[in-house]
Design a binder for these strands. Structure first.
Lengths: 233, 233
DNA sequence: TCATTAAATGTAAAAAATACACTATTTATT
DNA sequence: AATAAATAGTGTATTTTTTACATTTAATGA
């Protein structure tokens, strides 16, 4: 290809901020990697990799997630591209950050461990290499914004969940207490959850009813001008 | 540099969505270019260029804006990176889109014209090359979101403006009519505008008072937990 | 049957958003 | 000098949304 041939070419990477939610600890976690190559070998980093000649950015992000966790068909959201000259001491690399929301139980644990991956609580993250901490910060900000205006929370929960679990998740995302009654009122009034007959009985004697997010109904409402909004507290 | 040497390198470009606001036509405009090189020579495109070896993405965006308009120190917001394999028929190019909000009168008109640049009304945009129309679409969506929650509108207006002009701008951004009284009430209650003694008298006999946006006061309020919000109608 | 534990529920008050029509100021015209 | 014309500027009542808050219910195990 002759066109554009006088212009510089660049190394291009993708880094993935992979969020999970721990139901028991009521804690948002990130899937981090102990890096096994230079530079910064042995340090904590996001899951990442170089973009290949014949794959799009989105494809690269999905490949990296899948290689690490075995997960396919997960929506990966592009967040931002990091292009500072000195961001990677190994060479000039431009990195495109993607985020994913997954259910911790869905990953192939052995595969993840063999790749040096570990879940780390957001509240006590280790120092990360390069500019990966800024990437995390941006991803977190985006998550809090998105959680307000789109039903992304459900991607972090099992398909059956209780309203208490949903509230705890939102408390973890917003990092503040939320009024139980107002929260239930609000989420139920949207009419996008289905109450199941089954109860979750591990955490209480009374037990809490399970609910399911009905995506098809949500999509129908959206078409009719409905806006998801979970401003609380 | 030996590290990473086995990985592919990519052409990397920046494309700029440059917004302006025409006070008289009450119309948002984009600064578009008649492209003067192959492929797609002679077609309409965004202002763009390749990222150089020794410049960051932000620097590349600023350089491209400055080369075209003479403008320096304009905030350019990175929006999204486009990496589909076939997006540019000339070669595989990854492009990072940036947007800028500028005052039409501030640009170096001769420089812009000599570069093939023209202001085009958003309401009748020509067909753009490659995926540039998607870039514009994303930028517009971002503008409408940002205009609600941040005082970005003022970047499109002269430093002195009337409340009628401000309202017209927001009507153009939101693409809907806005109640005059409620709008004035809301923006004035934020206490971030200063009323000047001077009146604008071109458009009416009575004349409308000029106002100024007081950025320093806005910044102070923000520190105290104030949120700009211009939901209207 | 009583104590324990967490789930589930409703209402009143406050705040925010909305709808809406007339008066004020200046200039140009007769 | 009076009047017409044109846009700027203003206030209130109603509706909707948000917030604050305490008791009852269901199940289990002692």
């Amino acid at each position: 290809m002759q066109l554009y041939s006088k212009h510089s070419k660049h190394l291009l990477a993708v880094d993935c901020i992979i969020f999970g939610y721990d139901l028991l600890e009521k804690d948002i976690k990130l899937l981090l990697i102990r890096r096994n190559f230079e530079p910064a070998k042995g340090k904590w980093s996001l899951a990442g990799g170089f973009v290949k000649k014949d794959e799009s950015l989105d494809e690269a992000a999905c490949r990296i997630l899948c290689d690490l966790t075995g997960l396919k068909n997960i929506y990966m959201k592009q967040l931002y591209s990091y292009g500072d000259l000195e961001r990677d001491p190994g060479a000039r690399v431009i990195s495109v950050a993607y985020s994913a929301l997954i259910k911790i139980k869905d990953i192939d644990k052995d595969l993840a461990i063999s790749n040096g991956a570990h879940w780390q609580s957001l509240n006590r993250l280790p120092k990360l290499i390069f500019d990966h901490s800024s990437m995390v910060e941006r991803a977190l900000k985006d998550l809090t914004v998105q959680a307000r205006i789109k039903p992304v929370g459900f991607e972090l929960l099992p398909s059956k969940f209780t309203l208490v679990q949903l509230l705890d998740l939102y408390s973890a995302i917003y990092r503040k207490q939320i009024d139980k009654r107002n929260f239930r009122k609000k989420i139920l009034s949207m009419d996008i959850l289905e109450k199941l007959d089954e109860k979750e009985k591990e955490t209480s004697k009374k037990g809490a009813y399970y609910y399911r997010f009905i995506k098809s109904r949500y999509n129908k409402f959206i078409k009719n001008g409905f806006y998801f909004n979970l401003d609380v507290g």
